[in-house]
Amino acid sequence: MTFSIVARQGEAYGVAVASKFLAVGAVVPAARTGVGAVATQSFARVAYLDELLGRLAAGEPADEALAAATALDDGRETRQVGVVGVGSAATFTGSECNPWAGGVARDDGETAYAIQGNILTGPEVVDAMERAWHESVREPLARRLLAALAAGDAAGGDSRGRQSAALYAVEPGSGYDACGVLADLRVDDHTDPVTELARLHADWELYFGKPEDVQPLEGALASEVRDRLARAGFVADDVATALADWAGNANYEARLSPDGIDRRVLEALRAATS
């Protein structure tokens, strides 16, 4: 009933998942900074999330942790699970999962992933997700997870249709107030949940992402920014103070930089004052 990717890139861990199931993000994904990430699906056993993260935290590699957890579960043949830890990745598909069901897991040291799905249109869904993961190698983790999810959706996804999707990822120092949550987004009931999830993530990055492509507030750019801020009703003795006031009002304070103005903040300011 679900397809997902669980992955690690550097110190970041995350899960992206979609399903013809209400609020799939409330059931399937979990991740813990410095430990790993887990997806439980197909008659999901939610207890796997804490159990597997606990085993990973204790130093067990993903394949051993998954084998131990499923061995204790009488319902394991109805389950499907993906696990990624430090230096390890594993996937499990029980023999009683509804077809098509299967998965793949790989670890190349710097990155690792487990991709799995059940009640899919066919193996092409997993294949497409794996290709998208590799083709997005230059992107940060959350974007790679979304790229893989979108590829699986485009390849057919859940054979019953679409309803919900979710993205949950962690990374030290990321997110609002550097809380470590790289992304925490859910689309619980939607006709095109994967596309909607990507839209929400673009907004999430704008509000909670780190400054990028920062330009000094000098010369013509400083004059433009000062003029646009004044048009928006934000005037101060210096342009940096006015910018901080406007950014705080618009909830862009995570992207403020002492070195100038972030590219996406500048784009938002231009759009707001065009």
Rank of each mutant, 00 (worst) to 15 (best):
E64A: 12
V125E: 04
D158F: 00
L141G: 10
E96H: 11
T121V: 12
T91D: 09
S95T: 12
V81I: 15
S159H: 08
S159I: 14
A71W: 06
D108Y: 10
V126H: 02
E124N: 08
L146R: 09
W100D: 14
H134I: 06
L145P: 07
L66A: 02
P99F: 12
R76M: 01
E110Q: 14
G117Y: 00
L72P: 00
R76G: 00
Y113D: 13
G103N: 05
A90R: 03
I119Q: 09
A69S: 11
D74Q: 13
V84Q: 06
A148I: 12
G94A: 02
D127H: 13
S88V: 03
T121H: 06
A112K: 07
E124P: 00
L145I: 14
E77K: 02
L145E: 11
G102E: 03
A68F: 08
A101D: 03
A101Q: 06
A154M: 04
G117L: 01
G87V: 04
G102Y: 01
A67L: 10
P140Q: 08
V83T: 04
N98W: 01
G94V: 04
S88G: 11
E110K: 08
Q116R: 07
A142L: 09
R138C: 02
I115C: 05
N118S: 02
L72W: 12
E110A: 15
S159L: 13
G82F: 08
A112H: 06
G122I: 00
E64C: 03
A68V: 09
A150L: 13
V86Y: 05
A89L: 06
A147W: 10
E130T: 09
T121A: 09
I119F: 06
E64R: 11
V84D: 07
R143K: 13
V84M: 09
H134N: 11
T91L: 07
G102F: 01
G117M: 02
N118M: 03
A114Q: 03
F92P: 01
R131K: 15
L66R: 03
R144Q: 12
D74A: 15
Q116T: 13
H134R: 15
A148V: 12
I119P: 02
V81K: 00
N118H: 02
L146H: 09
G103W: 05
E139M: 15
G87A: 05
D107Y: 03
R131F: 05
A154P: 02
G103F: 06
D153L: 00
G102M: 04
A150P: 00
R143W: 03
V126P: 03
R144T: 10
A112P: 07
D153S: 08
Q80M: 12
A89W: 06
G75F: 06
A90F: 07
T70M: 14
R138A: 14
V86F: 04
G103L: 06
A142C: 13
E139H: 07
V125T: 06
D107C: 05
T111H: 12
V126L: 05
E64Q: 13
E124H: 08
D107G: 00
S88C: 04
A154R: 15
